[in-house]
Design a protein around this nucleic acid. Structure first.
Lengths: 215, 215, 215, 215
DNA sequence: TATGAATGAGTGTTCATTCAT
DNA sequence: AATGAATGAACACTCATTCAT
């Protein structure tokens, strides 16, 4: 049984330090937004020196940009793993709706980061060169899916893949990002597991009715 | 002999001062979020003294709460004016979708304020007593609408009015709040007037297919 | 006999606060130069809050600019008070040399501030609008003096008033600004009162021999 | 078999590294003064590792001291090369004035370094053991020169060599160190080549009139 | 009612210096 | 000899809030 060696001083591992900072920053930015986040807090969370943040990322905003880019790359990578092109169109569509919902649910930072970025009118994403064509493949994937469904007679023709994509995202994203105010104004706990399941069912209906031909 | 007008440095008009502060605060909070907003900036925008903000609203957060409450009361009041109960169910539903979209489009502060509040997990709304039952009437209105549609054989039965309401909001809200990041990742200008019209059409389809029975 | 009232809290006197800040800044900048000076230290010296410095002066550099401008305006004002045009040319010239030396000696901050500004290639003075034509009058004064001396047959013709002015300044300024290194490399205390008197005598000789005709 | 040359990443040449650091430090200190200079910047300019600065020089201040000492030793060495004792007194004096002016003009770092050191009240020079008697020889040289001139009937007797030395330095040094503020307050470009020549002429007159007997 | 002055605790950022290899 | 990682203290500057009038 190996010894626990956590008492030794932190190894001088540049990559590990950067990862810790990024992880801490993701949490902090997700929790407090860009302007509400504190560099001190991120450094402490990362068990790193504040100076390292500036050494590796240049500034708070550049750190935010990196975190945001990573978040986009992560979700785009996860979508690619779905391999929707190997499934029947209806199954693939359902899988995409379920995946999108579940991803937002399990990665709430993604939503908060994107909200923050939109508050700043995407000024960081505009500068980014890393997320250039990542979304292109998602749209292609959905377009292929729709084509296949139309050809096999199960989907309505003429549906715009970007609009569909946005709608699939919207019905999940909105529910989750507004769960706090929603729970109050609707006087119900939107975060309740049963409520969450009901919402997923409703969303599946919404998309299926939108896309599928009547049997 | 005419009254002295406008020559005095500033009329001591408590109500007018409060209104100016609220208007300025709405703009500032909408633009920068809660933590990104500056009390100094609000005071300047309001052409008021910073001290007045504390005099009338107690603190930055209480001012935010007031602004947020006003925003909710405004949209709820506008919804009530729709008088959906006097229209045919399908027309009423379409009108509600159009209204929701247009309201978000014309009142972008509403979206940003709600986003800010959700970042803070609705801590201000929780304290509020002013928006208690405002939403109740909206849900009732939609429930009535659905009932009438089902009875007249145009709507599917079993649709939850809260879920429907959330979905109607979601498909507009998401598009608009994420228009900046969306325009970049989809490489198209989502704020373009034609794009906006296309989105509204798509949303109408989405809701109609979800709610209406096939003819 | 009036009571000492120094125990009461500082009066809310904007002008007094600004003066205290300027006085403290002059000392600090003179002692440590621009980059060596600390805003905290200035605030403490001024018995003021650091925030006030930014309130009244905008930034450390703008404060420096104000201090520097004041220093130039002060010496120019003092020169104007000399009333050289009412004196015989030789006496007036001697008075100017003595004044310049004494002013540098009694106001060592002036020298250090000017040195600092030259290290920064006069970037602050370039922005200044307050010291525009203050020096013009000094040059005119010296030019008049030279003219009168030439006409009355005591001064050599053809002496450039700007060059003369620079030389009068140089022979005092250099000795004083370099008194610390000078005392070491020449192994003598240049700040000794007798040494100072000897220097003034030497400088008077230098200028008189440069300007006056042999008797 | 030829030696490996230049193909290794960096030759481990201690002396060369030190020289590069000193050269870089001279530039940086001259440009920004002691407190305005950055160790990082010096390391980068020297194409060396920051750690090397501490390895070879101990601290930023010790590096400054070395740079300053070198600067003094350089000018003192250049003065010794003038061989004034082999020239006629008047020619030698003129040569010294010209040399001093030209040296300051071609080595502006010398001036800035000395200014910095005086801002710090010569604290580094005080510690130095390397420049102990370097200046002695300069003063002796000028004293000899004066003696020779007096004996040959061309110079006035009783002129103090240290005072003369200081004055020769002052009239050049002051003009050059204050060229930035001077150009602004006198509304003329003191750095213009013609202006520089005129200043040298004026300075020659000043010294000659001070030292020489009337013909 | 209204105002400008004043403040203390932060806030992002920088710096000279040391550590581990 | 040489390097990149790491640090803590300090730095200029900001902010929501309170004081005095």
């Amino acid at each position: 049984m190996p010894k626990n060696q956590d008492t030794s001083p932190r190894p001088r591992d540049a990559e590990a330090t950067q990862k810790r900072i990024l992880k801490a920053a993701k949490k902090e930015f997700a929790k407090n937004g860009l302007s509400g986040s504190r560099v001190d807090e991120i450094a402490e969370r990362a068990d790193a020196n504040k100076r390292m943040i500036y050494h590796y990322f240049g500034s708070k905003e550049q750190l935010f940009q990196t975190v945001l880019e990573d978040a986009y790359l992560d979700i785009r990578a996860a979508e690619q793993k779905l391999a929707l092109d190997e499934m029947a169109p209806k199954d693939a569509l359902e899988k995409l709706v379920r995946f999108t919902w579940t991803y937002y649910l399990k990665n709430p930072e993604f939503i908060t980061l994107v909200n923050s970025e939109n508050l700043h009118r995407a000024k960081h994403l505009k500068k980014s060169t890393r997320i250039d064509s990542a979304t292109r493949r998602l749209v292609d994937m959905v377009a292929d899916l729709l084509d296949r469904g139309v050809k096999s007679g199960v989907f309505r023709p003429g549906i715009d893949p970007v609009q569909l994509n946005i709608t699939i995202a919207a019905i999940g994203y909105y529910y989750l990002t507004n769960q706090y105010t929603g729970s109050i104004i609707y006087k119900t706990n939107l975060a309740d597991p049963q409520a969450l399941n009901e919402r997923l069912d409703f969303n599946l209906q919404t998309i299926m009715r939108l896309v599928c031909l009547a049997p």
